[in-house]
Amino acid sequence: MTTFTVNGRSHALALDPRTTLLDALRDHLNLTGTKKGCDHGQCGACTVLVNGVRVNSCLCLAAMHDGDEITTIEGLGSPDRLSALQAAFVEKDGYQCGYCTPGQIMSATALFEELKAGHPSYVSEGLDGATMSDAEIAERMSGNLCRCSAYPLIREAIAMAAEAEE
């Protein structure tokens, strides 16, 4: 039996040990907002937060997350109550087909926290943290593929939400 919290709700699941966190969410908890694009950690569509840190849920076995707190796209907002990022994606048309979108938004949600915590990236000037810029967003979002290629608009949406937050 694996017990973890998803979006504040506790779940106890008896699963085939081969079940990934992604499949547990989608097929066993009916939280299908988290998407399966490649099942190999290559596309980012399955991004969720585990204890506040973004991970590819397809690369995790559910059984490894006993006691963890997981946040999925469903935990950020609902169609009637969008988070600032979700609203910005709609406003900027930061998507087309919508399939990579939950992963993009989860990644961007974590990105804000990583910047606040002073994590540098490959494009940062130094190791003492970084400030929000298009280059930083592009670098930090590169684990999330979008084949519709809404990239410039996704980044505009993230920048818009970041401004709103300030």
């Binding site: 299908t32 907002g33 469903e74 609902s78 709609v90 998507y95 939950p102």
Partner: peptide
């Protein structure tokens, strides 16, 4: 904006 946008950004 797309009418189905709120569904897409919330995973619904």
């Amino acid at each position: 904006s797309r009418p189905e946008g709120p569904k897409k950004v919330t995973g619904t």
